[in-house]
Design a protein around this nucleic acid. Structure first.
Lengths: 351, 351
DNA sequence: TTGAAAGCGCTAACAT
DNA sequence: ATGTTAGCGCTTTCAA
């Protein structure tokens, strides 16, 4: 790899002159330098530049799972926003492990100007690490306790879960179950709280068995669904707290030959990629995905460029949207009783 | 950020001693150094180290679209292999654009020790760029002309497409269409060639209209499917050359109320995430995904560590697998004729 | 406008 | 075992 001094020698000038040319200043020996550069195929070393300037023009992005379409879209959004700003992305997969996450963050410090993080869980050790590292951070999708002064882009988890609960209640369900996420994550807790609160307000109590906690991954959704299907009485409606667990649950329903929505109503937080093409199409609570990445990068960039250490935290909360498709219906009427007659007669699926 | 000299001063030793401690050598002042490091919260600058050593311990990964589950899985595989080797990943999205790709590659040079690339198209300019950059490269999923001496991990595209064609022929189809990828990409061309070759050998000709070329993205699959459905006579079977275009096609079928597999047989190269849960479950040609990433990283690592500039190219070709599920069936019998009687009587779906 | 020289943080001879 | 010093490739004063 040719260096700046190779170019300088070849062009018959000093390294300082070449450097000036590189930074756009007009120099007399312009032509000679340009020629030397192309002849030697010279590329300034980003490394050396960074060491000098203290800025790497890269950011770190750590998410629990790029394979999840939600995080894939977020990463995509970050990436495209970065390109506009001339930043590069170091991508890290934490695989929902707080230890791995801290290890990865440790390696990121010094390599990047800032970090966008979707923390695995709300681990106080991570918070302590972050503080010590003293690098600009923006949280995305999830937050961390003790970091209330950091910027973040999140979704209204409680509100979204509430929409789900209210919709099920409106359909007349009373035996409503939830496949929840870990309660030590922002979305896990938020979605749980919102869901239960809405049920409470309607005077519907959720049996302890009806809350199954998973880890946001497909396998746990599958297991949770099987457990729910095995209960007596079984729930008439299930809400899955994210897309991956919903996929697992759908596999379970399929295996157990449970027919949606006749025998069971089902909806999930976050869209599935092919959700609309399923039979029945899946009713979901959705939210902007790519956009969340873009917003997070905007926040980070403003921290980076304005240096704004004093500027107050900015928290962006996005709204969710209930997409009524076909996987929810009024609960099946108990055979040989008229109890079902209490339900409202109009079909709440088309309000 | 404290530097190595801050630590040295605090511990009352020279920077060289601290450096030795950092690299694991035993030093007398061990305790003092350890204390100084933790007290100052010192972290050696990866930047300075890289500048010195000439190695960044990072690699660049450029793929057309992380949002595609296939590439997401590949990236995941690379990432996990990297973690074992202590490498970091710079992720780039080329968005199927060769220009963007070259721009991104340009920024990667010097920042990374090696690159894993799934090229957008087989652009000779990219090949020239790569040669000039003189950085170890491994191709994944796709290759590039004029780069026959580079390592690569690809799948047997022609073989997989042949499997698809032979399966459809076996079912008795004769009006067989294909939604192909760009013919200037490795998989686009390979899948097309394999498919057409198999049809040829069976004496079945594909009408020109029956080959619709897309760009591997969902929208193009949707358009292509609509065009195919509008033909007279329409095809009785369609093969989509990748998962994203298959998703688009499925949307088109859904919109046009085409029932699979009774009215139309359909299968795709690469699995869809929920393909098994669709009605009918989707028959596909699948291949290892995560594993491809792992293999690519292995190849790259061996180039990196063995320095093996002289060592010959290694090309890993993976096999595909035909997953017979429910989206293909014998062609519908023409109404009011007995022509269909020519077809074999046994059901080739269960060989 | 240009060149000489210092220095970003670290490592690796070389010398002690 | 430890310290001194040069240097990785670049930018940026400071003089000329």
């Amino acid at each position: 790899m040719p260096t700046i001094s190779d170019v300088a020698r070849q062009a018959g000038v000093s390294t300082a002159t070449v450097s000036r040319h590189l930074s756009g200043q007009p120099v007399r020996s312009h032509a000679a330098i340009v020629e030397a550069i192309s002849e030697l195929n010279f590329r300034p070393s980003a490394l050396a530049r960074s060491l000098k300037s203290g800025r790497t023009r890269s950011i770190g992005v750590a998410v629990p799972d790029v394979t999840n379409p939600f995080f894939a879209a977020v990463v995509m959004g970050i990436e495209s926003a970065c390109r506009e700003d001339g930043y590069h992305v170091f991508l890290c997969n934490t695989e929902e492990s707080s230890e791995r996450e801290r290890a990865l963050l440790g390696e990121l410090y010094g390599r990047v100007d800032g970090i966008i993080l979707a923390p695995a869980i709300e681990d106080p050790r991570t918070a302590a690490d972050l503080r010590r590292a003293d690098v600009p951070i923006v949280f995305i999708d999830r937050e961390i306790t003790d970091c209330e002064d950091y910027d973040s882009v999140v979704v209204d988890n409680a509100g979204g879960a509430r929409q789900a609960a209210e919709y099920l209640l409106e359909l007349g369900h009373e035996r409503i179950a939830m496949i929840g996420g870990p309660l030590d994550t922002t979305p896990g807790r938020g979605r749980h709280e919102g869901f239960v609160a809405a049920l409470d307000e309607a005077g519907v109590e959720m049996a302890p068995d009806f809350l199954q906690i998973g880890d946001f991954r497909q396998a746990s959704g599958y297991q949770a669904a099987l457990r729910l299907l095995g209960l007596h009485p079984a729930p008439t409606a299930i809400f899955a707290a994210n897309n991956a667990m919903a996929m697992g649950a759908l596999h379970a329903f399929h295996e157990m030959h449970v027919r949606l929505p006749d025998e069971l109503s089902f909806l999930s937080f976050d869209d599935l990629e092919l959700g609309e093409l399923l039979a029945p199409p899946l009713t979901t609570i959705s939210r902007p995905m790519r956009e969340q990445g873009v917003l997070a990068m905007r926040l980070l960039r403003s921290r980076l460029e304005e240096g704004g250490d004093g500027r107050p935290r900015r928290r962006t909360v996005l709204a969710t949207h209930l997409n009524i498709r076909g996987s929810c219906a009024p609960p099946p009427r108990p055979v040989l009783t008229l109890a079902g007659a209490r339900r409202p007669s109009r079909d709440p699926r088309r309000p």
